[in-house]
Amino acid sequence: MNLNDFIRVIPDFPKKGILYKDITPLLLETKAVDYCLQEFINRLDGKEIDKVAAIESRGFFFGMLLAKELNAGFVPIRKKGKLPYNTLQESYELEYSTDNLEIHQDAINPGENVLLHDDVLATGGTANAACKLIERLGGEIVQCNFLIELTFLEGRKKLNHLEVVSLIGD
């Protein structure tokens, strides 16, 4: 299955010069969703997963599906101020500013095997911040997986100590 057939490219969104990769056409096709889910599972190669951590918001789509399929807990990683309980926070660099991610302090126990999922790996800043949060809680990151990787931005380099899987390289 050619997953690129299900990705809509929108020029100049959210700002001029950006080619936005819209995954909503893929989400409309159950066969494409099933295919992606099975590919993610296959690429885990039998690794034991206790928790699936996913980055808001589009990472939640496959993150929840993966957690259910793997019989693992689901951990939302969100932007600052979106989680209602005690949190840990990690800053990361954006193109012209910084932002913060948060995770609940009790979301991951030391020694638990964690799969990190997000929809797109671009510069790697967001994924790297999420990994730092997981590691600060004592989680062992088994793999970082992404639906799309914008390879020209070399975000994988920020995760060079981890196994990175992407289904669509661009």
Rank of each mutant, 00 (worst) to 15 (best):
I49S: 08
A67G: 10
R8P: 15
K15E: 11
L153S: 03
V114P: 02
K80L: 04
Q89C: 09
P76N: 02
R8E: 15
T30H: 12
E135H: 12
I41R: 03
C144N: 03
Q105S: 14
G46T: 11
I134E: 02
N100Q: 15
Y20N: 10
T151C: 10
G124S: 08
L159R: 00
L70H: 03
L37M: 09
D12L: 14
I108C: 01
F6V: 11
I148S: 07
D22M: 04
L70D: 06
A72E: 06
V52D: 01
E56Y: 10
D50S: 07
L66E: 02
L115W: 01
I55A: 00
G138K: 09
E163K: 15
R58S: 08
G73P: 07
L83H: 05
T98A: 13
L153G: 08
D106E: 07
P84Q: 04
I49F: 02
Q105R: 12
G139A: 03
D106F: 10
V142H: 09
N145D: 12
L121C: 04
G125Y: 05
F61D: 11
P110W: 05
K15Q: 14
N42P: 13
K79C: 04
V165R: 04
E102M: 01
L83I: 07
S91Y: 11
E102P: 04
V9L: 14
E112P: 02
S57K: 11
G59I: 03
D119M: 02
E149N: 07
Y92M: 01
M64T: 10
K132T: 06
L150A: 09
L83Q: 00
E140W: 15
A54W: 01
I10P: 08
L150Y: 11
D170S: 15
D99A: 07
K15S: 13
K157W: 13
L116N: 00
K16H: 09
S97V: 01
G81K: 05
Q143A: 14
E93T: 12
L27N: 04
K80C: 06
N100G: 15
D119A: 04
